[in-house]
């Protein structure tokens, strides 16, 4: 379970997040939406300890992560798989090495077991036989899939996705959404998905939070956001810039 209380973050003079309060239950799939620059990615990085909040507390599995040192954060992160917006694959490593790197660091698996885990993770995202390719040889969609394979390889309890479908064609978007759903349906994973895409929200989320002006403007189910009368919500859902 993730619990966020009174979270605020600003960069210099610019306030990004202001007094956020929400929690994510075990097994839930929460989409966090909002305009560009609304602070969605900053929020996600706060949840994994990559960005330190100015105020407030973040609990992951009842452990306060704000005050953790690097060693304690390592333990928490070993249970969180993070999928970055553009994959964030290590350029100097092959696909296989990208995935096995975390397994070598975080698990005590033998090299054969690691090879098998790499193969299985790539199979899950329909990318078998790409172990020896370099990231520069992959398309945007393939990079995102490998990014997902790297995140799921450690068999995490939490999966955080930072804009997993942004910039992809509709078919690839559907394919990534199905992957997210597949991991979610195991019932063992809690997902937090940062996205702009309402289609992803409707397809994969149990609950949606809309960030606006640094605050949580809307918190509800996907069908509720679709039918909301609020102009800010409607503007985002319909993409009509003249509404507000």
């Amino acid at each position: 379970m993730i619990e966020v209380k009174n979270l605020s973050k600003s960069f210099g003079e610019k306030g990004v997040l202001s007094d956020l309060n929400f929690s994510v239950s075990h097994g839930q799939s929460v989409a966090i939406v909002g305009k560009s620059g609304a602070g969605k990615s900053v929020l996600l990085k706060c949840l994994i300890g990559l960005v330190k909040p100015d105020e407030g507390t973040i609990y992951v599995d009842n452990k306060l992560i704000n005050s953790m040192n690097f060693g304690q954060l390592q333990e928490i992160r070993s249970n969180i798989g993070m999928v970055f917006q553009f994959g964030a694959l290590f350029d100097s490593m092959t696909v296989g090495e990208n995935i096995s790197l975390a397994l070598q660091k975080l698990t005590k698996l033998s090299s054969d077991e690691i090879k098998e885990r790499v193969y299985n993770s790539l199979e899950e995202v329909d990318m078998v036989n790409t172990e020896d390719l370099m990231p520069s040889e992959l398309s945007g969609g393939m990079k995102k899939r490998v990014g997902i394979a790297r995140a799921i390889a450690i068999k995490p309890a939490y999966l955080f996705y930072d804009e997993p479908t942004t910039g992809l064609d509709p078919v690839m978007t559907d394919s990534i959404n199905r992957l997210i759903l597949k991991f979610q349906d195991t019932g063992e994973v809690t997902s937090v998905i940062i996205t702009h895409e309402m289609r992803t929200v409707y397809d994969v989320a149990d609950r949606v939070l809309l960030l606006h002006g640094g605050e949580i403007w809307f918190d509800g189910r996907p069908e509720e956001i679709k039918n909301s009368d609020d102009l800010v919500v409607q503007q985002f859902v319909t993409g009509n810039s003249t509404l507000v």
Partner: peptide
């Protein structure tokens, strides 16, 4: 380049 393409964040998220 690793910094701006979030590879350093990815390293940290993988407990490195």
């Amino acid at each position: 380049t690793m910094r701006v393409s979030e590879q350093i964040d990815a390293l940290e998220s993988l407990s490195f």
